[in-house]
């Protein structure tokens, strides 16, 4: 999923300071799962903003809506009946959701309430870790199902650097050395010899170096 974390409340307050009627929009997908911008977080943020305005003796009108999927114009269309009645939109979706709203409603400013972090997986209750960089040319088939692009701090393709210490990354003892994990996994699978195959210099175009990516499926378009 795409993970996100709520922005500092003061930053959100600054964004909406000039406005009194706000449409606060959550998303039922990834940000709900990582507890950053689902229905529950929309309610909590609305309460916090109300409280802040009360303290300052100001009025604010917040309409709360959580869409099924903010990155999909079909669902964003559900905001149309409300948009003329508000001064600004605050989105609690990832950057994709914010931009889908901005593209649909040209005259209403939209502000992000979360920082989009990474594509990750749930490791344990309340813990998410980065797992994919979207490099566009997946190498997991040759690296034992562990990604060196996302999980090695230097995204090395041919083994661990000299900084590995007690099996952990030189950047932090809290980060597993991806190549230690790859090696252990290849050993478990009896595929050690695969380690010595040279991985060629990567073509970064599919992952963004070629400019912003677009997928067109002729059969669906």
């Amino acid at each position: 999923m795409i993970t996100a974390e709520q922005k500092p409340i003061q930053e959100i307050i600054q964004y909406i300071a000039p406005y009194s009627k706000i449409l606060l929009v959550g998303c039922n997908e990834c940000v709900t799962v990582c507890a950053a911008g689902g229905r529950k977080e929309v309610g909590l943020l609305a309460s916090a903003l109300h409280l802040n305005h009360l303290k300052q003796g100001k009025n604010i009108d917040i309409r709360e809506i959580t869409l099924e999927r903010q990155c999909d114009p079909e669902y964003v269309e559900e905001l149309a009946p409300y948009i003329d009645g508000v001064d600004a939109v605050v989105s609690m979706a990832c950057g994709c959701g914010v931009q889908t709203i901005a593209a649909r409603f040209k005259k209403t400013p939209v502000f992000p309430a979360v920082n989009t972090r990474f594509m990750g997986a749930s490791v344990s209750q309340g813990v998410w870790s980065e797992r994919c960089k979207g490099c566009g040319d997946c190498v997991l088939g040759i690296t034992g199902g562990i990604c060196p692009v996302a999980r090695c701090s230097k995204h090395l393709f041919n083994g661990p650097c000299g900084g590995t210490s007690n099996g952990q990354c030189e950047v932090s003892p809290d980060i597993d050395c991806a190549w230690r994990l790859i090696w252990e996994r290849l050993k478990e699978l009896g595929m050690e010899s695969r380690y010595e195959e040279l991985m060629e210099a990567k073509d970064w175009r599919p992952g963004g170096a070629g400019g912003p990516g677009t997928i067109i499926r002729e059969d669906l378009a």
């Binding site: 701090s153 230097k154 995204h155 090395l156 393709f157 041919n158 083994g159 650097c161 000299g162 900084g163 030189e170 950047v171 040279l198 991985m199 060629e200 210099a201 990567k202 970064w204």
Partner: peptide, 24 residues
């Protein structure tokens, strides 16, 4: 060489390039 991670230096906020690795 790959190089020490930027974390250790005086520009820890810098983006590391790592376009190719030391073997490449």
């Amino acid at each position: 060489l790959s190089g020490d991670h930027a974390k250790f230096g005086d520009h820890p906020m810098a983006q590391g390039v790592f376009d190719i690795d030391s073997v490449q």
